[in-house]
Design a protein around this nucleic acid. Sequence first.
DNA 1: TCAGTAGTTCGATCGTCATCGTACTACGAT
DNA 2: ATCGTAGTACGATGACGATCGAACTACTGA
Lengths: 103, 103
Amino acid sequence: MATKVLPQPERDEIRVEAVLQALGEPVRLTIVRALADNPAGVCCGEIELPVTASTRAHHLKTLREAGVLSTHTDGTRRISMLRREDLEALYPGLLTGILSAKQ
Amino acid sequence: MATKVLPQPERDEIRVEAVLQALGEPVRLTIVRALADNPAGVCCGEIELPVTASTRAHHLKTLREAGVLSTHTDGTRRISMLRREDLEALYPGLLTGILSAKQ
DNA sequence: TCAGTAGTTCGATCGTCATCGTACTACGAT
DNA sequence: ATCGTAGTACGATGACGATCGAACTACTGA
C-alpha cells in the first residue's frame, strides 16, 4: 500500500484569498467541478483538460496548496478529492454556490 | 438629481469565473467586505485602502464589470453597493460563505 | 532487471494585471 | 466664472502566473 497524503494546509491555515484566487481560473474551476461530481476522488489524469500534463500538475498543486483539494498517492497514480468538509466549515455555502452556477 | 447607473452586466450575463477572479484579489475583497457592511451603499473614496485613487478606480471597475457591485452617481460622488440579490440568485450561499471567513 | 506509465519539477516564455503618476472630466460652491 | 473636489482614463512599468517542453522520479508489470 504505502499511500501517502501530499502536503497541504491545515484547515486553520486556509486563507479565503487563496481559495478564491485558486477558483478564479477556468481550468482549475473545471477540475473542481470534476471532483465535485466524484466524491470518492478522481485520478488527476482522468479529467479532460485543454492543457499539457505539466500545466495540469501546476494547477493541481495550486488547488492543493490553497486547501481546495487533497491528494494521496495510490501506486503511480494520485487521487484527488475536494476538501468539502473543511471548505464547508470555513465558508459555509461557498462551494455549493459556485457549483450551482449553470456555467 | 440626475443620478445615473454605470454600465454593468445583466444578471444573466454574469459569469462565475469573472466573479471568482474578481473576488480573488485582496484589495477587491476588502472592498466587498466594506460594501457588505453597508447595504445602503458606500462612497468609493470612503473605503480605506492601501492603494492610490487610480488603482481604486480600477478595482471598482473590475468588480462592477464582473457583476459584483453596482455603482450610481450622486453629484461628484459615486455610490457602490453589492449586488446581493443577483449574486444570491445565481450562486446561493457564495457571498455569505465568503463573508463568514474570519479572515 | 528493464521497459512503460503516471506524474512532477525546472527553466523559459509570454500574456495578463496590479500599480502608479499624470492628465482629464464632471459636479458643486463661492 | 473659476476653484476645489471626486473620480476616471490613459500609458508605462513591473510582477505574477499560465503555459510549454524536457528532464526527472516513482511505481508497476513482464
